[in-house]
Nucleic acid binder design. Structure first.
Lengths: 157, 157
DNA sequence: TTCTGTTATATTGTTCGCAACTTAATTGAA
DNA sequence: TTCAATTAAGTTGCGAACAATATAACAGAA
């Protein structure tokens, strides 16, 4: 190795960690305006797209476990943005539905992705499309690789 | 726009968010072995490199605030990995030092970066160096852009 | 039908991350 | 010298995030 892997400045992972938090800091003022956290926002993104979902569906789609999702949904429910009820066909399953208020919030959220893209990408307009595609490609590849390794290790253990 | 920006599957930010957590999941079993969390690990990385630091220095280097760092240091201290004492020259400032036990832990941590690199990068050996450099470059650029925008907005507000 | 194992969700307990606030020490201007 | 402003760290409170556990409903075999 040509350099010390234990140096913070050489760590790819620390970059991901720092970047993720800086990104959340960019979202915060925009989401504060809607009274949402990022986790709540992406939960609503899923519901705006699908109208309804079970708790398990949401956990899978957002890669969160029920220990995160259950209290989060409880808070969205007390904010009157969603409703929850158990399915008659299977009383174990809880279905999550948007309320009218929750559906209406989408209109206030439409400006967020564009706003964040401005923070995230270079101000050079010509570069943006290319950079976006490259980044997306790399992130997808890296995420897939991580998941693959995790499954291998879980299987082998 | 050619597609819906509010679709979760189109969101660059969700990729960062999901990737960061998948990465932490890769670290967890390795760090459990040392009895550390990721935040504690990078705090020790900084101390292994610099031997000692003030609380403010650590906050700046890791982009964490004192509300995160103070209790974290308290836990590292009760684990006997660090010591804290106020500087005689300025009683406001707290200096953090590694204990012998904290210094010794570095030897158990040396295998971690290589292990994580295996999870993170493709198994194609030839591709690794190139991919690592590209990813690093993109992350650095994106992080810089985010910080730049944040400062502009803070100034303009 | 009954018992066993599985599935879906919720709860508990710990740490992180951050905003807002507190405390105490230092600085600097009047 | 005095006192108001600043600085460094710690505390409080809340919402993630996750492991471990609990609860309840369902599914299948005997």
């Amino acid at each position: 190795m040509a350099y010390d892997q234990l140096l913070l400045s050489n760590q790819l992972c620390f970059r991901f960690y720092a970047l993720e938090r800086e990104l959340m800091a960019a979202y915060r003022p925009l989401l504060d305006h809607l009274g949402l956290t990022y986790a709540q926002y992406i939960t609503l993104l899923y519901l705006w797209e699908h109208e309804k979902a079970t708790v398990g569906e949401l956990c899978t789609a957002l890669s969160l476990d029920t220990g995160t999702m259950s209290p989060l949904l409880k808070r969205l429910e007390s904010a009157k943005l969603i409703e929850r009820h158990r399915l008659p066909s299977d009383e174990r399953t809880v279905e999550v539905l948007l309320t009218k208020k929750g559906r209406a919030l989408e209109q206030k959220a439409v400006s967020i992705p564009g706003n964040i893209a401005t923070c995230l990408l270079s101000s050079d307009r010509d570069e943006q499309g290319k950079k976006y595609a490259e980044l997306r490609e790399m992130l997808d590849q890296t995420l897939e690789q991580l998941k693959r390794t995790r499954k291998e290790r879980e299987a082998g253990k």
